[in-house]
Amino acid sequence: MNTTNSQTSSYSDYWKRPHFIKRAWLRWLLMVGFAIYLALALGTMDIDWERAWEGLPRGQRFIQAFFPPNFADNRGVVFDGIMESIWMAISATIFGIILSIPIGLGAARNLSPAWVYFLCRGIIASSRSFPEIIMAIFAVKLFGFGPFAGFVALSIGTIGFFAKLLAEDIEVMNASQAEAVKVTGSSWFQWINYAIQPQVMPRMIGLAMYRLDINFRESAVIGIVGGGGIGATLNTSFSRYEFDTTAAILIIIIVIVMVLEYISGYLRKWVQ
């Protein structure tokens, strides 16, 4: 025992994990800053607890409406709304992607001259500038109530999403493969077709499905501002206190999103 003691006493028995941020002042600054922010944020939150408390029975009623949800009443309206949402999402995805392809190619630094690059990047940036719902508000102002406004808003959103990712994908693709095709003296279109398309295609199909998914989910709220689709029906059922219909609509939305997700997972495996 004695010998072990004398052997081990030379080693420290203190160890502390090194901090992630090594500079102490920076660490404290960040921590204190975050704490102050949290305190301020929570402190300035104007919450009417009494109103929230009173609302709990309403919440209970709302949840009860799910058991059972009412698929029967308003069946026609709900079906129409859902179909409108689906078609809106599909057409906005297709149209948006068709527009995205030239814009995406133009926004890839390794393909395009500077002026095209900046033009296309500008289009992408402005179509990403506002949430789809704000786009939809203005589309409704311009085109009147109905799915066309939603279609326009979702198409713009699709361009911002798809063209950006397409451009980024082209920028990081394998340059040597692209070069190899270029030196054969092919035309620009042939070059795109043989060198670029095979490299980016699988991912793009996956992204298209993903965007379809997003567009469908967005189409469910665009109706709230008058842009057509299931959102209008949802909003109406809600303001009429027909919660069992609301529940039915929510369940349908969830099921459709699940199906879309399943299909896109399957499709992605299939194209790769």
Binding site: I47, D48, A52, G55
Partner: peptide
């Protein structure tokens, strides 16, 4: 938000 405004009342909460 639509659901929660109905239950908790309008506001940041």
């Amino acid at each position: 938000a639509l659901i929660l405004v109905f239950i908790l009342g309008p506001g940041v909460l």
